[in-house]
Write a protein that binds this DNA or RNA. Sequence first.
DNA 1: TAGACATTCAACCATTTGGTTGACGATCCC
DNA 2: GGGATCGTCAACCAAATGGTTGAATGTCTA
Lengths: 110, 110
Amino acid sequence: MANSLDTIFAALADPTRRAILSMLLEDDMAVTDVAEPFEISLAAISKHLMILTRAGLITQEKRGRVKWCKLEPDAMRNASVWMQGFGQFEPVNLDAFERFLETELDSTPE
Amino acid sequence: MANSLDTIFAALADPTRRAILSMLLEDDMAVTDVAEPFEISLAAISKHLMILTRAGLITQEKRGRVKWCKLEPDAMRNASVWMQGFGQFEPVNLDAFERFLETELDSTPE
DNA sequence: TAGACATTCAACCATTTGGTTGACGATCCC
DNA sequence: GGGATCGTCAACCAAATGGTTGAATGTCTA
């Protein structure tokens, strides 16, 4: 299930993947260009991009032989909102909150 | 290094650990009481609590033979701030959450 | 003091993760 | 057509993860 808190937080737990997200904040990028600043193999980057895609944090679109990677900032919103639950509001039922986020995801257009 | 984004996000990626954090939102708890609702062993819970502690998300204080677990909501701030850098997701829609709670009450008889 | 309780430690296991390399399927362009 | 480029796949590896069980440690209490 894409966009679950599990996959989003797991995707964010890796520094390489967070760096990729930061790069994509500037602009959409081809896979090869994403890989350029890193010292690991292209295949490894490709795997990282898969994980980010499964988490819904980016989308990939192939045009010709180039696959373009695009940041999807909204995906982080659920995780962000979940985290806001700690500290900001008064004791709230976070289980209910998690269910709320799930139903919200189902109903979010696009 | 406690409180790094790596350890915080990795700690949050597990549903058991998120559930524990939610429980601690209500009140401080002893390890045994934390473990009670889960079906895994006490040792496994102890490990989860270690991970949450290393991430700085909780603290543990031993009084007598009981070790009390306490939520540290501030620790999430670093991660939260990092995430805010991505996109302008709207602030938490508390109204929507309240409506959700109402419909949930209607649909889940007790 | 002996037992019960609270918690961790140690050893172990299966699965996942993050990386490698080499081969492969597309696609562009000369 | 044929070579270069883009990206993934497959097989493999080491290390980390999440779980188990049983023994050990420390503390309370009858």
